[in-house]
Amino acid sequence: MQPILTDTSLSTLIAQGENNAVEFKSALVNPDSLARELVAFANTHGGVVLLGVEDSGDITGLPNDRNHEEWVMNIARENVIPALDVTVTQVIHENKTVLLIQVPKGRDKPYQTRKFQFLIRVGSTNRVATQAELMRLFQQSGVFHYDLQGVEGTSMRSLDLRKLADYFLKYDIDFEQEDDRERILINTDILDESGRATIGGMLIFGINPQRHLPNASISFAHFAGHELDDELLDKQVIGGTLDIQVDTALAIIKNHIRQPSRIEGSRTVDQIFQYPDKVFRELLVNACVHRDYAIHGSRIRVFMFDDRLEFISPGRLPNTVSVEKIKLGVSYGRNPVIVKFMENMRYIDKLGRGLPMVYRTAVQAGKQVEFMELGEEFRVILAL
């Protein structure tokens, strides 16, 4: 194996110290200890293990007593469950060998050690995932869908029966005349098997969703400037079912956005570029449909500044989805119940065309649009 990382790059990496993406390991590390590092990185955002570097940053190198690349690969396959693919690169520093082990953000989360420990990376250390964190790991892998969970204290009485009747009428079902309405709602994932409204059912058909899901809402703020500490012109919290949230937030954005125009003959002509409504609508729908509702302490936020709009949604992208893939139309279904109903209500399609449309519209107008993950949030920044 030929070295592909330069000595200078290695020194730069070591100079950063151990952090949320870099870990130093001595040549004396045992397989279980190394497996813990691989598991923690794979369950979080990926990272790099430098094998042959002490905690102090001193490079002590690796002995010639084994094929270290093969040894690392075996640990990744046999001491990590499920098996993990890592990339190993050899670097020579002053006649000392260091292995750079690149651990990707795992595709098959959650990973665990042979001792059944689910670990995550926090800063420069690893710790056992809490129950809530473990649940989100399962959700990211597609094994578990949070919007299918029943909401405590709810029942069919928590749902808007008129809205349900209108919805089912589109499919030639006279819901009000059905003998076993509860079974219909269970079969369509609006209720769970115990008769509680599911999170998805509550957010689409609930009478007052925020009574049980207080942060399943949109917070809108308009600032007179470019920063969060500039004068706050308006602030609103938008509740209700997701379709109402989208429609209300869209109306608020249109009411606040600058629309300078002039009169030419009998026509009113915009003096600056105006995004079509479908752009704002898509960003609102995307945030509502794909946010991580398992994160209880945060709302969707829409921030309006003089030069941009920011749409901030709780939750990182699922395992196999990246920011670049989203631009090309790769879609994902963190909340399949919500996706199903919002699609049937004509708020979305499942072809992944929404965010690429936003990207093309902005680029064609000479405007910047940025998709990014920041902490446990997904953010879209749209230049005005």
Rank of each mutant, 00 (worst) to 15 (best):
I14S: 10
G315P: 05
L10R: 01
I338A: 11
Q259N: 09
G366L: 02
K109V: 13
A221Y: 12
V72G: 07
N286Q: 13
S124A: 12
T268F: 07
I204N: 11
M304Q: 13
V29K: 06
T320C: 04
Y332G: 02
S266V: 06
M1S: 08
G106H: 01
V321T: 13
S331P: 14
H290Q: 14
V122W: 08
V380K: 14
A42Q: 07
I252W: 05
N43I: 08
D166N: 13
R77K: 13
Q271W: 00
A76D: 09
V53S: 03
A15H: 02
L5N: 09
H68W: 15
D172M: 05
V302L: 10
D7W: 04
E193Y: 07
Y275L: 00
T6A: 11
G46W: 14
A294R: 06
K340T: 13
A27K: 04
H45M: 09
D292V: 07
F378V: 09
I252A: 04
G265Y: 14
A251K: 02
I207N: 11
F175Q: 03
N43V: 11
F220P: 03
G47K: 00
V337I: 11
Y359F: 10
A40F: 14
T87P: 06
R36Q: 09
V49P: 04
V330D: 05
T361V: 08
S11A: 05
P31W: 12
S298V: 00
M73L: 15
L185Q: 06
L309G: 09
V369M: 00
P260E: 02
A83I: 00
G352A: 11
I253A: 06
I59P: 02
A294T: 04
L159A: 09
A76C: 07
L169Y: 14
I238W: 10
T361H: 03
